[in-house]
Computed example of a mutant assay.
Amino acid sequence: MYVVLLTYTAPLPEIDYVLPDHVEWVARQYDHNHLLASGRRDLHLGEVMIARPMARLKLDAILATDPLAVKHLAHYEVVEFSATRTCPELRLLNEAIPH
């Protein structure tokens, strides 16, 4: 599983111009079952996304298609972790429990 910290690297007017395309991109990632959660960071610094377990190269390829990445308007920090404890709603994603 991954936490993706997206930090805007351009002025907000440039971000706002591309944001509708980015919002559509995020929706497609939910449609493809790649994301578990997402939202804005405080102070409009960027966003946080939680991605399902997958190969890191696959996640990198997905992130590279984000319009903010294509236009070089954001930096992505990816933190990989193995979920060993989860709330009941996320039990199927708990990598420590055999399924």
Rank of each mutant, 00 (worst) to 15 (best):
M1D: 03
Y2I: 03
V4M: 08
V4D: 01
Y8A: 11
T9V: 06
T9A: 11
P11F: 00
P11D: 10
L19G: 08
H22G: 06
W25F: 14
W25G: 02
W25H: 07
V26R: 05
Q29Y: 06
Q29C: 13
Y30G: 15
D31G: 13
H32L: 15
H32I: 01
H34Y: 15
L35C: 07
L35A: 03
L36I: 14
L36W: 09
S38M: 01
R40F: 11
R40H: 04
L43V: 07
L43D: 13
L43T: 11
H44C: 06
L45I: 05
L45W: 09
G46P: 07
E47Q: 12
V48Y: 02
V48H: 02
A51V: 06
R52L: 05
R52C: 08
R52N: 05
P53E: 03
M54F: 00
A55C: 06
L59Q: 01
A61D: 12
I62M: 03
I62P: 02
L63S: 01
A64N: 06
T65H: 10
T65W: 04
T65N: 15
D66S: 10
P67S: 08
L68N: 12
L68E: 06
V70C: 10
A74R: 06
A74G: 12
V78M: 08
E80M: 06
A83L: 10
A83E: 07
R85G: 12
T86K: 12
E89A: 08
E89Y: 10
E89F: 13
L90A: 13
L90K: 05
L92C: 09
L93R: 08
A96P: 02
I97K: 05
I97G: 04
I97S: 08
P98D: 02
